[in-house]
Amino acid sequence: MKVLIVDEMHESIVHMPEELGLEVDYFPNIAFEEVLEKVGDYEGLLIRSKFSINEEFLTHANKLKFIGRAGAGLDLIDLDACKKAGVDVFGANEANKVAVAEHLIGMILSLFHKVNQGNSEVKRGEWNREKNRGEELFGKTIGIIGFGNNGQATAERLAAFGCKILAFDKYKYGFGNHLIQEVSLQEIYEQADVVSLHIPLLSTTYQWVDDEFFNSFKKNIYFCNIARGEIVKLDALANALKSGKVKGACLDVLENEKLKTLTQEQKETFQFLSTQDNVILTPHVAGWSNESYVKINQVLKDKIRMWLEQNA
């Protein structure tokens, strides 16, 4: 069986499928047009985020049996088209959950204790102690929306900080324990001090976070998104920050991450967010640790192995 790899990944990705007896071709810099020319010769395809896979793409891949995504989330892959074509799809969602959780907690702590702000001021020769008085995470009520791999890993670590953890998942139940309370979304609206998104990008979650979402909270909240940027209408977040409904935000993702292609409205919103001391932005790197880079390959290898066993 031949496997085509079309994105740059940790070098171990070549050897791991080979250990399963597969023939691997690794083209990390291949252009999309070349992929269309080659993919028809392969039963397996490994991709990260170079391009989307849709029904038209699959017409060029008549032999394809499985697609593995080196990362969390499958929103770049048309799952219905793959099912129709008989192509199995799996991701490496488990691989970066530790990196995501640690990154998010680092962002929250930096926001609460004004680490970024204080760091910038001291480097400018300013020594403002009272202005940089922090707020403790201990005792806060955290609303986790989405309790998959990343949501669970984040919740468990925040519980260790002495936080009350409320978790809601539209598609799961029975996951509560002595650390985490399984609740309705309404209970998060009523009780949360901090809200963190851990949900996939679907047609039902696209721009789900809007003005109505923020106005549903009883308290003024801190808001975090390390899921997918398109879930949040950034102008709604900007409005909530201006009104004080959102006291601060941690964003690892944006609705348009190609900053050179922002519309005029997006530019204005981004300019506002980027000038706020109570907003921390990072470039979609929450799951991008040195360790997760390798773990992703290990998870893909295990899933390919299981797929081979099931389809032997």
Rank of each mutant, 00 (worst) to 15 (best):
G248R: 05
V14M: 09
Q276R: 15
A227Q: 01
I226K: 00
E136R: 12
P17K: 05
E19D: 14
S196T: 11
K242I: 14
A101K: 05
F175S: 06
K247D: 07
N256S: 06
Q271M: 03
E33T: 07
N29E: 10
A155Y: 08
D211T: 15
F112L: 15
L45N: 03
V294P: 03
E268G: 04
N215D: 15
T59I: 07
G229I: 08
M306V: 09
H284E: 02
E126M: 11
L36N: 04
W208R: 09
K170T: 13
V279D: 03
E126D: 09
K84L: 11
S216R: 14
S243G: 11
S274W: 07
D277A: 10
D80N: 12
N96C: 13
V24S: 06
K258M: 06
E11T: 09
I180C: 07
V195K: 04
L281Y: 00
H15C: 01
G143S: 13
I165P: 07
I30W: 02
G91L: 00
L241Q: 07
S49V: 11
E19Q: 14
G162P: 10
K242A: 07
Q181H: 13
E19Y: 03
I5R: 02
L241W: 06
N54P: 09
V246D: 06
D193Y: 11
Y222A: 08
L308I: 14
L273E: 07
G91W: 00
P28C: 10
S274Q: 14
F147G: 04
N54H: 10
K303L: 08
T59S: 15
G139V: 13
T204Q: 13
V299P: 03
K97P: 00
D277S: 13
N177K: 02
Q276A: 08
A61H: 03
R48K: 14
D169R: 09
I226G: 00
G134M: 03
P28E: 11
C224L: 11
E43G: 05
D252Y: 05
K260M: 09
E37K: 15
D169V: 09
V232E: 00
N297V: 01
E187P: 02
K164D: 14
K50E: 12
W307R: 01
T275A: 15
L185C: 05
N132V: 06
K170G: 04
A153E: 13
G162Q: 08
T261P: 01
E212M: 13
K63V: 04
E121S: 02
L64Y: 00
L273P: 05
I188E: 03
D277V: 04
